[in-house]
Design a protein around this nucleic acid. Sequence first.
DNA 1: GGGTCATTTTGGTCAGACCATTTTGGTCTG
DNA 2: CAGACCAAAATGGTCTGACCAAAATGACCC
Lengths: 252, 252
Amino acid sequence: MPPSSATTSASGKTRAEDISNILRDEILLGQYRAGERLPSERDLAGRFQVNRGAIREAIKTLAELGIVQVQPGGVRINPLEQASLSVLGPLLDLKAEGRPEVVSELVVVFGALLGLSGRLALAQATADQRAELLQILERIDPTSDVSDQDEQFRSVLEAFVKALGGIHNNLVLRLIRNGLRTQMVGRLKPKQPSPVTDRQLLKDMAIAIEANNGNQLAMVISRHFDDLSVKLSAIEADIPTFANRQRNSGHA
Amino acid sequence: MPPSSATTSASGKTRAEDISNILRDEILLGQYRAGERLPSERDLAGRFQVNRGAIREAIKTLAELGIVQVQPGGVRINPLEQASLSVLGPLLDLKAEGRPEVVSELVVVFGALLGLSGRLALAQATADQRAELLQILERIDPTSDVSDQDEQFRSVLEAFVKALGGIHNNLVLRLIRNGLRTQMVGRLKPKQPSPVTDRQLLKDMAIAIEANNGNQLAMVISRHFDDLSVKLSAIEADIPTFANRQRNSGHA
DNA sequence: GGGTCATTTTGGTCAGACCATTTTGGTCTG
DNA sequence: CAGACCAAAATGGTCTGACCAAAATGACCC
């Protein structure tokens, strides 16, 4: 029986990647408890109809996410608190079924880091660089409709984050940003978008930049995202999760 | 020729782990440029005298660190800015030879995140929890000698960070902390330790906690680590690196 | 219940093979 | 000379079947 001819799937992903994504989601959804072992490599190879090598590669990925620990005798599940930041993306993708509060948690952390980023950048920026930051903030067209403004706010935020990074060049912040999926933050909104609040933030940011006041910039950013986080927390309390769906059916 | 009998090294690490660490450090030290390809799996298997499977596992680890991109035709080096936060630990370990400024960058980011952590925790803490935080801050014995106080400061900082996490329970912050190697931060000091500055920080923190003032707590923490970062920056400018050692020998 | 030991199961690694995709080098044309 | 095209070589992706080290399991005894 020669080796299989299916190297990559239609989406360009390898079999090992598909498998690690499936296992990752099962783990994040709580199918296995911390300390428990995954099924053996041989069993998983049978389940997914692949060679054991592909399973090993899939499990390698999970190990680097920090959600499993691989040792002879079996692959054990780690507590989620011991995972690496790279697990945040998949967690967010599972929002409604996994740990919904991660969204509001992310927003407040993002705000603090964006504030820091602004502070560091303003401490170093030339007048030209400040002008460029102000130009980015002015990109929103106030006459467009609400959903367009939402999209524009997201795009402005992304461009602003990027420009700050280009000024302060703090690698640690950049690495954190890579893990935070900041492109998602602009999408983490209450059901009713708040163009007024978003526009007020951009105005306040512009004022702080014109005044070259890094602490002021950090403060208006932090405050905005703290407020957003509080709103999201209220919504998260209402979201049914896998865990509380099971709890409810156990009591019915 | 049967499979090798050497499964793990004396330190409990697999061959694949050893190899990925070697390749990781070579990459971080700039031996390959972004966009270049690593040697092929087959060539690396020859170089390290192992089976190609072990090389594939080693490279899988590098891919999850975000420092390489694996595709048919070769494994290419990513720019460091696209790496994951997990690369920070190894970068710090290479401090004197890699990118020395990452230390001061880490310190300022750590300070901002610790400040946020303090703010979030104080927003939620019971009186008992605040008392526990104060107790941790009082652990330093002012009559002990300077190097003991340094060790105590580090230990207090760690316990404090942990206690804050236990109060606010923000998973995103926890995941970032996992990647920041925060246990290293207390060791990132100028050559002359500053027990006076450290003790002043602990005093200021205690005052803010007693006043239950989260913004005050965040501010004293941030300021302390900003100052430390500035000091470290001055020292970093004097450290010879691989890159500027090569530059100098090219001009001699 | 705990301790010991043999057996089984698990992960770690190997050689050799074949397929899909990318890279390289050669040739031709304008 | 530059650009296009093509075949061959090289690369990663995956397979089968194998063996070894370390951990897990179950039987037995006290």
